[in-house]
Design a binder for these strands. Structure first.
Lengths: 188, 188
DNA sequence: CTCATCCATAAACCTAGGTTAATGCCAGAC
DNA sequence: GTCTGGCATTAACCTAGGTTTATGGATGAG
Protein backbone atom coordinates (compact mmCIF):
# COMPACT_ATOMS: atom_id res chain seq x y z
CA UNK A 1 0.00 0.00 0.00
CA UNK A 2 2.75 2.49 0.96
CA UNK A 3 4.81 1.26 -2.01
CA UNK A 4 1.85 1.93 -4.26
CA UNK A 5 1.44 5.46 -2.94
CA UNK A 6 5.10 6.31 -3.30
CA UNK A 7 5.25 4.93 -6.83
CA UNK A 8 1.99 6.50 -7.98
CA UNK A 9 3.06 9.86 -6.61
CA UNK A 10 6.40 9.64 -8.34
CA UNK A 11 4.94 8.65 -11.71
CA UNK A 12 2.02 11.05 -11.66
CA UNK A 13 4.23 13.94 -10.63
CA UNK A 14 6.03 13.68 -13.98
CA UNK A 15 2.83 14.26 -15.97
CA UNK A 16 1.91 17.69 -17.18
CA UNK A 17 -1.80 16.84 -17.06
CA UNK A 18 -1.46 16.45 -13.31
CA UNK A 19 -2.64 19.34 -11.14
CA UNK A 20 -1.43 20.13 -7.67
CA UNK A 21 -4.31 21.29 -5.45
CA UNK A 22 -4.55 22.61 -1.92
CA UNK A 23 -7.90 22.86 -0.17
CA UNK A 24 -8.81 24.48 3.13
CA UNK A 25 -10.70 22.81 5.96
CA UNK A 26 -14.38 22.44 5.16
CA UNK A 27 -14.01 22.47 1.38
CA UNK A 28 -15.17 19.63 -0.85
CA UNK A 29 -12.96 17.81 -3.34
CA UNK A 30 -16.17 16.74 -5.01
CA UNK A 31 -19.81 16.64 -4.14
CA UNK A 32 -22.42 13.90 -3.94
CA UNK A 33 -24.55 14.01 -7.08
CA UNK A 34 -21.83 15.58 -9.25
CA UNK A 35 -19.88 13.55 -11.75
CA UNK A 36 -16.17 13.70 -10.97
CA UNK A 37 -13.95 11.13 -12.60
CA UNK A 38 -10.68 12.53 -11.26
CA UNK A 39 -8.25 10.51 -9.20
CA UNK A 40 -7.00 12.24 -6.06
CA UNK A 41 -3.64 11.38 -4.61
CA UNK A 42 -3.51 13.04 -1.24
CA UNK A 43 -0.11 13.85 0.20
CA UNK A 44 -1.15 15.69 3.34
CA UNK A 45 -4.34 16.33 5.30
CA UNK A 46 -7.50 14.58 6.43
CA UNK A 47 -10.60 13.88 4.35
CA UNK A 48 -13.96 12.28 5.05
CA UNK A 49 -16.08 10.57 2.40
CA UNK A 50 -19.74 11.03 3.27
CA UNK A 51 -23.20 9.98 2.17
CA UNK A 52 -26.17 12.28 2.82
CA UNK A 53 -29.47 10.39 2.93
CA UNK A 54 -32.82 11.53 1.55
CA UNK A 55 -33.81 12.78 5.03
CA UNK A 56 -30.66 14.86 5.35
CA UNK A 57 -28.57 12.65 7.60
CA UNK A 58 -24.84 12.36 7.08
CA UNK A 59 -22.99 9.04 7.35
CA UNK A 60 -19.28 8.54 6.88
CA UNK A 61 -18.03 5.97 4.41
CA UNK A 62 -14.37 6.39 5.27
CA UNK A 63 -11.52 8.66 6.26
CA UNK A 64 -8.33 9.25 4.34
CA UNK A 65 -5.51 10.45 6.58
CA UNK A 66 -2.14 11.95 5.55
CA UNK A 67 -1.45 9.97 2.38
CA UNK A 68 -3.97 8.08 0.30
CA UNK A 69 -5.79 7.69 -2.97
CA UNK A 70 -9.49 8.25 -3.50
CA UNK A 71 -12.12 9.15 -6.07
CA UNK A 72 -15.62 8.25 -7.16
CA UNK A 73 -15.52 4.82 -8.77
CA UNK A 74 -19.08 5.25 -10.00
CA UNK A 75 -17.94 8.31 -11.97
CA UNK A 76 -14.62 6.83 -13.06
CA UNK A 77 -15.87 3.47 -14.32
CA UNK A 78 -19.46 4.22 -15.25
CA UNK A 79 -19.59 7.99 -15.79
CA UNK A 80 -22.29 8.26 -13.15
CA UNK A 81 -22.63 10.98 -10.50
CA UNK A 82 -20.75 10.33 -7.29
CA UNK A 83 -22.79 8.73 -4.52
CA UNK A 84 -20.76 10.53 -1.87
CA UNK A 85 -18.86 13.73 -1.12
CA UNK A 86 -15.20 14.18 -0.17
CA UNK A 87 -14.74 16.89 2.44
CA UNK A 88 -11.56 18.26 4.03
CA UNK A 89 -11.41 17.97 7.81
CA UNK A 90 -8.00 19.61 7.77
CA UNK A 91 -6.03 21.60 5.21
CA UNK A 92 -5.27 19.15 2.37
CA UNK A 93 -2.74 18.88 -0.42
CA UNK A 94 -3.21 16.51 -3.33
CA UNK A 95 -2.25 15.67 -6.88
CA UNK A 96 -5.15 15.13 -9.22
CA UNK A 97 -5.57 13.79 -12.73
CA UNK A 98 -8.39 12.40 -14.88
CA UNK A 99 -9.07 8.70 -14.46
CA UNK A 100 -8.69 8.17 -18.21
CA UNK A 101 -5.17 9.55 -17.98
CA UNK A 102 -4.39 7.26 -15.11
CA UNK A 103 -5.76 4.30 -17.06
CA UNK A 104 -3.56 5.22 -20.00
CA UNK A 105 -0.53 5.37 -17.69
CA UNK A 106 -1.32 1.85 -16.52
CA UNK A 107 -1.36 0.56 -20.08
CA UNK A 108 2.15 1.95 -20.63
CA UNK A 109 3.48 0.92 -17.24
CA UNK A 110 2.85 -2.70 -16.22
CA UNK A 111 4.39 -2.08 -12.81
CA UNK A 112 1.86 0.67 -12.13
CA UNK A 113 -0.95 -1.55 -13.43
CA UNK A 114 0.10 -4.38 -11.13
CA UNK A 115 0.31 -2.10 -8.13
CA UNK A 116 -3.07 -0.59 -8.94
CA UNK A 117 -4.52 -4.07 -9.09
CA UNK A 118 -2.99 -4.76 -5.67
CA UNK A 119 -4.42 -1.50 -4.39
CA UNK A 120 -7.93 -2.45 -5.47
CA UNK A 121 -7.47 -5.86 -3.85
CA UNK A 122 -6.45 -4.12 -0.64
CA UNK A 123 -9.43 -1.78 -0.86
CA UNK A 124 -11.71 -4.76 -1.42
CA UNK A 125 -10.36 -6.51 1.66
CA UNK A 126 -10.94 -3.35 3.70
CA UNK A 127 -14.55 -3.10 2.55
CA UNK A 128 -15.05 -6.79 3.28
CA UNK A 129 -13.77 -6.22 6.80
CA UNK A 130 -16.15 -3.34 7.33
CA UNK A 131 -19.02 -5.47 6.07
CA UNK A 132 -17.97 -8.09 8.62
CA UNK A 133 -17.95 -5.52 11.41
CA UNK A 134 -21.39 -4.14 10.56
CA UNK A 135 -22.76 -7.67 10.43
CA UNK A 136 -21.06 -9.24 13.43
CA UNK A 137 -20.15 -6.53 15.94
CA UNK A 138 -22.26 -4.46 18.32
CA UNK A 139 -21.83 -0.68 18.31
CA UNK A 140 -19.69 -0.99 21.43
CA UNK A 141 -17.43 -3.63 19.90
CA UNK A 142 -17.08 -1.54 16.77
CA UNK A 143 -16.07 1.44 18.87
CA UNK A 144 -13.33 -0.48 20.65
CA UNK A 145 -12.05 -1.93 17.43
CA UNK A 146 -11.95 1.55 15.90
CA UNK A 147 -10.04 2.98 18.86
CA UNK A 148 -7.62 0.06 18.76
CA UNK A 149 -6.86 0.32 15.07
CA UNK A 150 -7.14 4.09 14.57
CA UNK A 151 -5.72 5.66 17.68
CA UNK A 152 -4.12 8.59 15.82
CA UNK A 153 -7.14 9.24 13.60
CA UNK A 154 -9.43 9.14 16.65
CA UNK A 155 -7.51 12.10 18.08
CA UNK A 156 -7.99 14.17 14.93
CA UNK A 157 -11.75 13.84 14.40
CA UNK A 158 -14.78 14.95 16.40
CA UNK A 159 -17.01 12.53 18.22
CA UNK A 160 -19.76 13.44 15.80
CA UNK A 161 -17.74 12.19 12.86
CA UNK A 162 -16.62 9.08 14.71
CA UNK A 163 -20.26 8.25 15.46
CA UNK A 164 -21.27 8.92 11.86
CA UNK A 165 -18.59 6.46 10.79
CA UNK A 166 -19.72 3.77 13.24
CA UNK A 167 -23.33 4.13 12.18
CA UNK A 168 -24.66 5.52 15.48
CA UNK A 169 -25.54 8.95 16.91
CA UNK A 170 -22.99 11.04 18.82
CA UNK A 171 -25.19 10.63 21.90
CA UNK A 172 -25.02 6.85 21.70
CA UNK A 173 -21.25 7.10 21.35
CA UNK A 174 -21.04 9.31 24.42
CA UNK A 175 -23.08 6.73 26.34
CA UNK A 176 -20.75 3.92 25.28
CA UNK A 177 -17.77 5.92 26.53
CA UNK A 178 -19.27 6.73 29.93
CA UNK A 179 -20.50 3.14 30.33
CA UNK A 180 -16.96 1.93 29.75
CA UNK A 181 -15.46 4.59 32.00
CA UNK A 182 -17.66 3.37 34.87
CA UNK A 183 -16.55 -0.23 34.37
CA UNK A 184 -12.92 0.87 34.38
CA UNK A 185 -13.41 2.95 37.51
CA UNK A 186 -14.95 -0.05 39.27
CA UNK A 187 -12.15 -2.44 38.36
CA UNK A 188 -9.44 0.09 39.32
CA UNK B 1 -19.76 -9.95 -15.24
CA UNK B 2 -21.54 -12.59 -17.33
CA UNK B 3 -18.84 -12.25 -19.97
CA UNK B 4 -16.25 -12.86 -17.31
CA UNK B 5 -17.99 -16.00 -16.09
CA UNK B 6 -18.40 -17.45 -19.56
CA UNK B 7 -14.79 -16.74 -20.46
CA UNK B 8 -13.34 -18.00 -17.19
CA UNK B 9 -15.37 -21.18 -17.44
CA UNK B 10 -14.24 -21.77 -20.97
CA UNK B 11 -10.57 -21.20 -20.22
CA UNK B 12 -10.47 -23.09 -16.93
CA UNK B 13 -12.30 -26.04 -18.42
CA UNK B 14 -9.31 -26.67 -20.71
CA UNK B 15 -6.91 -27.09 -17.79
CA UNK B 16 -6.10 -30.51 -16.44
CA UNK B 17 -5.42 -29.10 -12.97
CA UNK B 18 -9.08 -28.10 -12.81
CA UNK B 19 -11.42 -30.35 -10.85
CA UNK B 20 -15.14 -30.66 -11.35
CA UNK B 21 -16.97 -30.98 -8.03
CA UNK B 22 -20.56 -31.59 -7.04
CA UNK B 23 -21.72 -31.01 -3.47
CA UNK B 24 -25.01 -31.86 -1.82
CA UNK B 25 -27.17 -29.44 0.14
CA UNK B 26 -25.69 -28.69 3.55
CA UNK B 27 -22.09 -29.43 2.60
CA UNK B 28 -19.27 -26.89 2.91
CA UNK B 29 -16.96 -25.91 0.07
CA UNK B 30 -14.60 -24.69 2.75
CA UNK B 31 -14.81 -23.89 6.40
CA UNK B 32 -14.15 -20.78 8.49
CA UNK B 33 -10.71 -21.14 10.10
CA UNK B 34 -9.31 -23.45 7.42
CA UNK B 35 -6.91 -22.22 4.79
CA UNK B 36 -8.35 -22.79 1.34
CA UNK B 37 -6.77 -20.92 -1.52
CA UNK B 38 -8.86 -22.52 -4.26
CA UNK B 39 -10.98 -20.56 -6.68
CA UNK B 40 -14.53 -21.89 -7.12
CA UNK B 41 -16.38 -21.30 -10.35
CA UNK B 42 -19.93 -22.33 -9.68
CA UNK B 43 -22.06 -23.37 -12.63
CA UNK B 44 -25.23 -24.45 -10.82
CA UNK B 45 -26.66 -24.23 -7.31
CA UNK B 46 -26.92 -21.84 -4.38
CA UNK B 47 -24.25 -21.05 -1.80
CA UNK B 48 -24.11 -18.88 1.29
CA UNK B 49 -20.89 -17.38 2.66
CA UNK B 50 -21.17 -17.11 6.43
CA UNK B 51 -19.33 -15.77 9.45
CA UNK B 52 -19.78 -17.43 12.83
CA UNK B 53 -19.02 -15.07 15.72
CA UNK B 54 -17.26 -15.91 18.99
CA UNK B 55 -20.66 -16.38 20.67
CA UNK B 56 -21.83 -18.83 18.03
CA UNK B 57 -24.06 -16.60 15.94
CA UNK B 58 -24.16 -16.95 12.18
CA UNK B 59 -24.24 -13.95 9.83
CA UNK B 60 -24.37 -14.11 6.08
CA UNK B 61 -21.81 -12.23 4.04
CA UNK B 62 -23.34 -13.05 0.67
CA UNK B 63 -25.16 -15.50 -1.54
CA UNK B 64 -23.95 -16.92 -4.84
CA UNK B 65 -26.79 -18.09 -7.02
CA UNK B 66 -26.62 -20.22 -10.18
CA UNK B 67 -23.36 -18.99 -11.69
CA UNK B 68 -20.62 -17.16 -9.87
CA UNK B 69 -17.03 -17.08 -8.66
CA UNK B 70 -15.96 -17.16 -5.04
CA UNK B 71 -13.14 -18.09 -2.70
CA UNK B 72 -11.33 -16.88 0.37
CA UNK B 73 -9.26 -13.86 -0.56
CA UNK B 74 -7.50 -13.96 2.80
CA UNK B 75 -6.26 -17.46 1.94
CA UNK B 76 -5.55 -16.70 -1.70
CA UNK B 77 -3.60 -13.48 -1.28
CA UNK B 78 -2.18 -13.85 2.21
CA UNK B 79 -2.20 -17.57 2.93
CA UNK B 80 -4.33 -16.96 6.00
CA UNK B 81 -7.26 -19.09 7.20
CA UNK B 82 -10.60 -18.15 5.73
CA UNK B 83 -12.71 -15.80 7.84
CA UNK B 84 -15.92 -17.39 6.57
CA UNK B 85 -17.47 -20.66 5.41
CA UNK B 86 -19.11 -21.47 2.07
CA UNK B 87 -22.13 -23.72 2.49
CA UNK B 88 -24.45 -25.25 -0.13
CA UNK B 89 -28.11 -24.30 0.24
CA UNK B 90 -28.92 -26.42 -2.80
CA UNK B 91 -27.07 -29.10 -4.73
CA UNK B 92 -24.09 -27.36 -6.33
CA UNK B 93 -21.77 -27.97 -9.26
CA UNK B 94 -18.50 -26.12 -9.65
CA UNK B 95 -15.08 -26.07 -11.24
CA UNK B 96 -12.21 -25.53 -8.85
CA UNK B 97 -8.53 -24.79 -9.21
CA UNK B 98 -5.72 -23.40 -7.02
CA UNK B 99 -5.45 -19.62 -6.98
CA UNK B 100 -1.79 -19.84 -7.99
CA UNK B 101 -2.82 -21.68 -11.14
CA UNK B 102 -5.41 -19.05 -11.89
CA UNK B 103 -2.82 -16.32 -11.36
CA UNK B 104 -0.48 -18.07 -13.78
CA UNK B 105 -3.27 -18.25 -16.34
CA UNK B 106 -3.74 -14.50 -16.04
CA UNK B 107 -0.07 -13.88 -16.75
CA UNK B 108 -0.35 -15.85 -20.00
CA UNK B 109 -3.72 -14.44 -20.98
CA UNK B 110 -4.06 -10.64 -20.84
CA UNK B 111 -7.74 -10.85 -21.73
CA UNK B 112 -8.38 -13.04 -18.69
CA UNK B 113 -6.28 -10.70 -16.55
CA UNK B 114 -8.27 -7.69 -17.73
CA UNK B 115 -11.58 -9.38 -17.08
CA UNK B 116 -10.43 -10.51 -13.65
CA UNK B 117 -9.52 -6.93 -12.86
CA UNK B 118 -12.99 -5.86 -13.98
CA UNK B 119 -14.48 -8.60 -11.83
CA UNK B 120 -12.67 -7.35 -8.74
CA UNK B 121 -13.80 -3.81 -9.54
CA UNK B 122 -17.38 -5.06 -9.78
CA UNK B 123 -17.01 -6.94 -6.49
CA UNK B 124 -15.61 -3.80 -4.88
CA UNK B 125 -18.59 -1.76 -6.05
CA UNK B 126 -20.96 -4.37 -4.63
CA UNK B 127 -19.24 -4.28 -1.24
CA UNK B 128 -19.30 -0.48 -1.29
CA UNK B 129 -23.05 -0.60 -1.92
CA UNK B 130 -23.57 -2.96 0.97
CA UNK B 131 -21.52 -0.67 3.22
CA UNK B 132 -23.77 2.18 2.10
CA UNK B 133 -26.90 0.18 2.94
CA UNK B 134 -25.67 -0.81 6.41
CA UNK B 135 -24.78 2.81 7.11
CA UNK B 136 -27.74 4.61 5.60
CA UNK B 137 -30.75 2.29 5.60
CA UNK B 138 -33.00 1.01 8.39
CA UNK B 139 -33.65 -2.73 8.63
CA UNK B 140 -37.00 -2.19 6.96
CA UNK B 141 -35.52 -0.23 4.05
CA UNK B 142 -32.85 -2.87 3.62
CA UNK B 143 -35.52 -5.55 3.49
CA UNK B 144 -37.44 -3.76 0.72
CA UNK B 145 -34.33 -3.14 -1.26
CA UNK B 146 -33.38 -6.79 -0.96
CA UNK B 147 -36.82 -7.96 -2.13
CA UNK B 148 -36.70 -5.50 -5.02
CA UNK B 149 -33.29 -6.51 -6.26
CA UNK B 150 -33.31 -10.22 -5.38
CA UNK B 151 -36.84 -11.42 -6.03
CA UNK B 152 -35.75 -14.83 -7.33
CA UNK B 153 -33.16 -15.40 -4.61
CA UNK B 154 -35.70 -14.42 -1.96
CA UNK B 155 -37.87 -17.32 -3.07
CA UNK B 156 -35.06 -19.83 -2.71
CA UNK B 157 -33.82 -19.04 0.81
CA UNK B 158 -35.40 -19.31 4.26
CA UNK B 159 -36.42 -16.30 6.25
CA UNK B 160 -33.72 -17.20 8.73
CA UNK B 161 -31.02 -16.82 6.11
CA UNK B 162 -32.53 -13.64 4.74
CA UNK B 163 -32.51 -12.16 8.25
CA UNK B 164 -28.91 -13.27 8.80
CA UNK B 165 -27.98 -11.49 5.62
CA UNK B 166 -29.75 -8.27 6.60
CA UNK B 167 -28.14 -8.27 10.04
CA UNK B 168 -31.32 -8.84 12.07
CA UNK B 169 -33.08 -11.80 13.73
CA UNK B 170 -35.70 -13.87 11.89
CA UNK B 171 -38.26 -12.62 14.42
CA UNK B 172 -37.51 -9.00 13.57
CA UNK B 173 -37.87 -9.84 9.89
CA UNK B 174 -41.23 -11.47 10.53
CA UNK B 175 -42.34 -8.33 12.38
CA UNK B 176 -41.31 -6.12 9.45
CA UNK B 177 -43.36 -8.27 7.09
CA UNK B 178 -46.51 -8.23 9.21
CA UNK B 179 -46.12 -4.50 9.84
CA UNK B 180 -46.02 -3.95 6.10
CA UNK B 181 -48.90 -6.35 5.45
CA UNK B 182 -51.09 -4.34 7.82
CA UNK B 183 -50.28 -1.08 6.05
CA UNK B 184 -51.12 -2.67 2.71
CA UNK B 185 -54.39 -4.07 4.05
CA UNK B 186 -55.34 -0.62 5.29
CA UNK B 187 -54.60 1.14 2.01
CA UNK B 188 -56.39 -1.55 -0.02
C1' DC C 1 -50.26 -43.45 8.59
C1' DT C 2 -47.20 -41.27 12.78
C1' DC C 3 -43.41 -38.92 14.55
C1' DA C 4 -39.74 -35.66 14.51
C1' DT C 5 -37.77 -31.64 12.71
C1' DC C 6 -37.53 -27.33 10.87
C1' DC C 7 -39.63 -23.10 9.80
C1' DA C 8 -42.71 -18.98 10.42
C1' DT C 9 -45.41 -16.35 13.49
C1' DA C 10 -46.86 -14.34 17.73
C1' DA C 11 -46.82 -12.52 22.55
C1' DA C 12 -44.40 -10.72 26.60
C1' DC C 13 -40.64 -8.61 28.25
C1' DC C 14 -35.98 -6.38 28.01
C1' DT C 15 -32.24 -3.47 26.12
C1' DA C 16 -29.67 -0.60 23.04
C1' DG C 17 -29.97 3.09 20.57
C1' DG C 18 -32.71 7.30 18.61
C1' DT C 19 -34.89 11.88 19.78
C1' DT C 20 -35.35 16.08 22.04
C1' DA C 21 -33.89 19.41 25.00
C1' DA C 22 -30.89 21.48 28.56
C1' DT C 23 -26.24 22.51 30.26
C1' DG C 24 -21.44 23.56 30.31
C1' DC C 25 -17.17 24.14 27.82
C1' DC C 26 -14.04 25.88 24.69
C1' DA C 27 -12.27 28.51 20.70
C1' DG C 28 -12.55 31.90 17.33
C1' DA C 29 -14.55 36.53 15.86
C1' DC C 30 -14.94 41.06 17.08
C1' DG D 1 -12.82 41.62 27.45
C1' DT D 2 -17.81 39.76 25.25
C1' DC D 3 -20.45 37.19 22.11
C1' DT D 4 -21.14 33.40 19.29
C1' DG D 5 -21.22 28.80 17.49
C1' DG D 6 -19.87 24.18 17.69
C1' DC D 7 -18.87 20.21 20.59
C1' DA D 8 -19.56 16.85 24.43
C1' DT D 9 -22.41 15.29 28.02
C1' DT D 10 -26.60 14.17 30.55
C1' DA D 11 -31.45 13.18 31.36
C1' DA D 12 -36.14 11.83 30.03
C1' DC D 13 -38.77 9.56 26.97
C1' DC D 14 -39.71 6.65 22.81
C1' DT D 15 -39.01 2.93 19.42
C1' DA D 16 -36.91 -0.79 16.98
C1' DG D 17 -35.02 -4.78 17.55
C1' DG D 18 -33.30 -8.83 20.66
C1' DT D 19 -34.68 -12.80 23.78
C1' DT D 20 -37.50 -16.32 25.36
C1' DT D 21 -41.16 -19.21 24.90
C1' DA D 22 -45.22 -21.15 22.71
C1' DT D 23 -47.94 -22.58 18.73
C1' DG D 24 -49.17 -24.24 14.24
C1' DG D 25 -47.90 -25.65 9.60
C1' DA D 26 -45.04 -28.05 6.35
C1' DT D 27 -41.87 -31.64 5.24
C1' DG D 28 -39.36 -35.80 5.31
C1' DA D 29 -38.23 -40.52 7.52
C1' DG D 30 -39.90 -44.64 9.08
Amino acid sequence: MDDFLAYVCHQVWKLNSCRKVSYTKGRDFFHQGETCSDVFIMTEGLVKLTYVTHDGKEWIKSFIMDKGVFGSRASQSLGQPSTFSATCLEECRALTLPYKTFEAMCVDDPKLAGMTFQFFQWLGLKKELREHDFLCLSAEEQYWKFMDENAVLAGRITQIDMARYLGITPIALSRIKTRQAKIEAKSA
